[in-house]
Amino acid sequence: MKHLTVLAALCLLVFWGSVSVARIDTFVFDNPQDEQRFKKLSAELRCLVCQNQNLADSNAELAIDLRRELYSMIKAGKSDGEILDFMVARYGDFVLYRPPVKPTTYMLWVGPFILFVIGAVALVMFVRRRSDDVLPGDELSTEEQSRLQGLLEKQPAGKRKQR
């Protein structure tokens, strides 16, 4: 039990250490709106070095530089649009987590819906065909039905086959 406590404490210590190292840059903003904008924009811009992280989360050198750049642009009173244009001009649409809708990204935006429609149509066709499989002529006549009943009753219970 004591070992467990020590282990837990050690884990916490190691984890704590990594957390405190993760964010070192501190920016001071003139007003809370600017700080909100910084948070929003740094969450929407992708870090190109570690592509599945945004600028806010990434600790790559480039992300740190771009956060500083973002900060100075906000300080300089640039609008969100101007800042995003600045980033796109240098790193392309890929820097945006929400790429713009334009001819090269149509597939990206519409593709999932196309797949959905194809899937839905395939499903409907499949279900329709299955329900069509039982034709009126396929049904048993009264005679056949009673014969079947007789056969089923002859079979010992438990050995009955389905169908």
Binding site: L48, V49, D65, R90
Partner: peptide, 13 residues
């Protein structure tokens, strides 16, 4: 030194 020109050139790797 600052990597400022690197940003203008879109350098990331």
């Amino acid at each position: 030194e600052e990597g400022r020109v690197g940003i203008d050139w879109g350098v990331y790797g």
